[in-house]
């Protein structure tokens, strides 16, 4: 359970190359980001971490690390 691992899963969920993302990436500014990506991220958190993210959690996060903080806090 590391941030690096989470970034990798995040990239896989939204179908971009892992190398194009970091923990500080502002994901909603990515050119291919859309509302369907939010569903993919919620699905990934559920499947890989057993964590329920809300739409608001994704909406209120700016960087991938912001999402990770929510996921890792709820995972514990």
């Amino acid at each position: 359970m590391t941030i690096e691992n989470f970034v990798e899963k995040f990239a896989f969920a939204i179908e971009v190359e892992t190398v194009s993302l970091t923990a500080d990436t502002e994901f909603k500014a990515l050119p291919n980001w859309d509302s369907l990506n939010a569903l993919s991220v919620i699905a990934m958190a559920d499947a890989d971490y057993g964590v329920a993210l809300s739409g608001e959690d994704v909406h209120s996060s700016t960087t991938i690390n912001d999402v990770w903080k929510i996921v890792s806090a709820r995972k514990q």
Binding site: S35, A38, S54, G55, E56
Partner: peptide
Amino acid sequence: DGIARRPDNLLLRGADIFSFAIS
């Protein structure tokens, strides 16, 4: 979300429904 609707149109917040449904 940048989408134009009338007040009597349906508004769907897909991410919230998704999160609710799978949990």
